[in-house]
Amino acid sequence: MAVDEESDTSPRNSTGGENTENKRNEGRGEEERAFECNICLDTAKDAVISMCGHLFCWPCLHQWLETRPNRQSCPVCKAAISRDKVIPLYGRGGSKEDPREKLPPRPQGQRTEPENTGAFSNFGFDGGFQMSFGIGAFPFGLFASTFNFGDPVIRGHGAHGTNPANLEDERFLSQLFLWVAILFIFWLLVA
């Protein structure tokens, strides 16, 4: 027999008269049932409450939200529910930590953007210049190209940024390519 009928009461039954103990336990049970998680049916641990007023253990609710990530609804009343719309409950004593911080049990995947110290960040500032344009619908690119003049990694700071000749060169090139681009677009429209 795997059913454990006395799981709740066994520690108390070992002391005192059985009848009074049982009665007291029943009364206590009624009172405590109001604070049972609607999923595991046990007293809510790391309790959270939904906007619709239903009480859960955060681990239980979290698992339910993970089960149906696309259709997250309150298990009791089917109202919309989400991680950010539940309120942690802090009784007297116990942990003051937000239960939602303790879980998720599954660590989140992490990704960070690569550090961008290269070409794109110093466009137009210290001598690096680039321009790219492309026309066409993926995957049939008609024309896509990148022009990259001046490698800012190799060039030092200061010297080139203030060099007027260099600046003029760049301005000329940028205008040239701008016109090439405009002509090309024009040609595309006409053709």
Binding site: A2, V3, D4, S7, C40, L41, C60
Partner: peptide, 21 residues
């Protein structure tokens, strides 16, 4: 992970027992 799994198994077993009782 296996600890978490055994915990959830325990929780689920407990819930079934409560229901049956």
């Amino acid at each position: 992970a296996s600890l978490a799994q055994s915990c959830t198994l325990q929780r689920q077993e407990k819930r079934l027992q409560k229901e049956l009782v």
